[in-house]
Design a protein around this nucleic acid. Structure first.
Length: 276
DNA sequence: CGGCAAACCTGCGAGC
DNA sequence: TGCTCGCAGGTTTGCC
């Protein structure tokens, strides 16, 4: 489930639990996630204090007090489950458990194991292979119409595929690309290079709006959710087109409604009348 | 170099 | 009830 808004919500929840606290123990229950866990993970993390939890694209970054950074990615099915230490038996796919000095535990649970955990140094973090070629943050100040237009210029690929390319803009996934294109009234099959000028402005506005609203929804549901299940960042969405095949387009009265097509092996949901 | 399908892995719901 | 198939929110790999 995790795209940028979900990861942002998870980071905020993790920050509330971890910031300023010692990680007293790491329980490595399964070493083979998408990549093998670093051999020195336990040794380098246990006993360190967390300075801050932050996000880059869909990556969770945990800064430790010795300059080490934990890089965590949730993949397709990863979750962070927060609870009181020992309050629940480990679940089937709890791969790594963080324990803190104030009696809390965070369980990294990931059935499909597309997620991973790695270590880096803060001073060279930007050079990490997973982060080095990422595009701008879509909610950052450096992302605007001209910047997106420039990055799409010359791209002979559908705009849907271009927006999923983390080198163009970092953090969008299949859901929010569909939603953003819908609100920008742009066809997912349109050639990326043709998104210039006002169309690029429209697309940037749609991307920022969709992501911001999703983060706001996550933030508001987070309080309740943590109190009940301790799970972070998963909440009911109200999407306009994603997963809505066959349902009426919420914004126009075309007969065919929301359609689904396959692009780059992924489902695209769109309204053929509204999006051009 | 650029763009695309396939691969990684598990779970779930639909259909037979 | 139980099996098979298709599908799933990400990213890298390898092939053309």
């Amino acid at each position: 489930m995790p795209e940028l808004p979900e990861v942002e919500t998870v980071c905020r929840g993790l920050a509330a639990v971890l910031d300023g606290h010692l990680i007293t123990r790491l329980d490595l229950r399964r070493p083979d996630l998408r990549f093998p866990l670093p051999l020195d993970l336990k040794q380098r993390v246990e006993g360190r204090r967390v300075e801050q939890v932050r996000r880059r694209a869909k990556y969770i970054l945990i800064d430790l007090d010795d300059g080490t950074v934990i890089i965590a990615h949730l993949g397709m099915s990863g979750r962070m489950v927060v609870g009181r230490l020992g309050s629940a038996e480990p679940l089937k796919h709890d791969h790594v458990v963080f324990e803190t000095d104030h009696g809390m535990e965070i369980r990294f649970n990931d059935p499909r194991r597309f997620g991973f955990i790695d270590l880096a140094e803060r001073t060279t973090l930007a050079l990490h292979p997973m982060l080095a070629s990422l595009g701008p943050e879509p909610l950052g100040n450096e992302f605007n119409g001209p910047v997106l237009a420039d990055r799409l210029a010359g791209k002979v690929t559908p705009i849907k595929a271009a927006l999923l390319d983390q080198r163009i803009v970092a953090g969008l996934g299949n859901i929010y690309v569909c939603e953003a294109l819908y609100f920008a009234r742009l066809s997912p099959t349109r050639l990326a290079a043709t998104i210039q000028g006002a169309k690029a402005e429209r697309l940037v506005t749609a991307i920022r709006s969709v992501l911001s609203r999703a983060i706001a929804a996550g933030g508001s549901s987070l309080r309740d959710y943590v109190q009940t299940s301790g799970e972070l960042g998963y909440f009911q969405h109200q999407w306009a087109v994603y997963g809505k095949e066959g349902q009426p387009c919420p914004d126009c009265n075309c007969g065919q409604g929301v359609e689904r097509m396959i692009q780059s092996n992924r489902s695209t949901f769109y309204c053929a009348k509204k999006q051009r």
